[in-house]
Amino acid sequence: MKIDVFLYATLSKYLPEGSTNRSTVVNLPEGACVRDIIEELGVPEKSVKLIFINGSHARMETSLFENDRVGLFPPVGGG
């Protein structure tokens, strides 16, 4: 299944070369979870603080479905 993955801030460096809009498409088998994305892209798990799937908070073990939009962030804040 195809997953749209967005890697923001310091995580952008783990995107494949030539990626635009801070995003890439990752192909994963059915039943995959968020952890499979970061393993695929080589993102260290401890560098990920915030996980959004389709705009809602999720965890490393949350299951993915075709065409999900996944956004990953390191710890960030502002205001």
Binding site: Y8, A9, T10, L50, F52, V76, G77, G79
Partner: peptide, 20 residues
């Protein structure tokens, strides 16, 4: 956040977070 995120990207690092 105060040691890395805010110095590197400023408060505007939130645009992508809040949008996401």
């Amino acid at each position: 956040v105060t040691g890395q995120g805010l110095p590197a990207y400023g408060t505007n690092v939130l645009t992508n977070v809040v949008n996401e």
